[in-house]
């Protein structure tokens, strides 16, 4: 309770309230995340349960009664009579799950490597940061494609669909750790020379304890900012991979998969199968990105 009231009284919350963009972005993000979480409760049908589908409902126009069954679908249906609104809700779940997991993976990996590089310095630092530099010369999506390809090559075909999501997370996470490592290393270089770290060294604390208990908590501010911005990028990366057909399988479609499927119908006039998933992706990526931008500005002491 104290933490909550402290937060409500904090400068951060004050600045949040004063920024309409941030509030709007937060509301959109929250609505999307909540509807993904509670998709089974909200969605009119389970689009992946063949029993709940009615082929007669195929290609229903959005918001109009179906010519055969008279049912109304807010966002229309696809060729098999799947409610697009429901597929979007379930697709959001996959997109957000992959995005969050990939960012957490990248954050943990990057922070640990950045801490070690910054604190130990010397050769360890050089090796870690050179690897990071090399990886940074390739576009992240290319790195993800490469990792995805390798992973696909080494998994037996019967497991591919099951592990696809996890491979996706691994691929996006590995392509994204570098910026966490850089930011944490930079903060660590500053913090490790501060006198409170000297005071801890003086009483013989081990490097591990100093890194985790003293330095890490003081690097969390910038990490949080990077994580938010990365989340938007990870969601887009996932959508890109899925759109290219190498991401989430059609049995577990993410927003990207839905867009890929939808574009096949675009030229025959069934625009809604593409349009609504694309708008949802846009809203999600944009609002998360705006939140990240706002957070970066709000936590930047120079702009205060």
């Amino acid at each position: 309770m104290e933490a909550v009231s402290n937060f409500l009284a904090s400068d951060l919350f004050y600045r949040f309230r004063k920024s309409p963009v941030a509030v709007l972005a937060f509301i959109v993000t929250a609505v999307l995340v909540l509807s993904a979480l509670f998709a089974p409760l909200i969605a009119p049908q389970n689009p992946f349960d063949p029993g709940s589908l009615n082929l007669m409902n195929g290609f229903s126009l959005p918001g109009e009664p179906n010519q055969f069954t008279g049912e109304i679908f807010m966002f229309g249906t696809d060729d098999q009579g799947r409610d697009v609104f429901s597929t979007i809700l379930y697709g959001l779940r996959i997109s957000l799950f992959v995005g969050f997991s990939a960012v957490i993976f990248a954050m943990v990996l990057g922070s640990v490597l950045g801490l070690i590089a910054g604190y130990t310095g010397g050769r360890t630092d050089t090796i870690i940061m050179r690897i990071a530099d090399i990886q940074l010369t390739f576009p992240a999506i290319l790195v993800a494609l490469l990792i995805f390809g390798i992973a696909k090559g080494i998994t037996p075909p019967s497991y591919r669909d099951e592990v696809a999501i996890w491979v996706l997370i691994l691929a996006i996470g590995l392509s994204d750790w570098v910026q966490f490592a850089r930011v944490v290393r930079g903060a660590t270089l500053v913090e490790r020379n501060k006198e409170y770290v000297q005071a801890a060294k003086l009483i013989g604390r081990k490097p591990m304890a100093i890194m985790l208990k003293h330095i890490l908590p003081n690097t969390l501010g910038p990490v949080l900012v990077i994580a938010t911005i990365s989340l938007a990028l990870a969601i887009i990366a996932e959508a890109t991979l899925s759109f290219l057909g190498v991401g989430a399988p059609p049995t577990q479609p993410s927003l990207g998969t839905l867009i890929r499927i939808g574009q096949g119908f675009l030229f025959s006039g069934e625009y809604w199968i593409l349009l609504y998933p694309a708008l949802t992706l846009l809203a999600l990526a944009l609002s998360v990105n705006l939140l990240g931008d706002w957070l970066r500005d709000a936590l930047n002491p120079k702009l205060k």
């Binding site: 501060k194 006198e195 409170y196 000297q198 005071a199 003086l202 003293h214 908590p217 003081n218």
Partner: peptide
Amino acid sequence: MIFQSPYASLN
């Protein structure tokens, strides 16, 4: 040891 800067010496 007591350090110079009371701002940097406390976590």
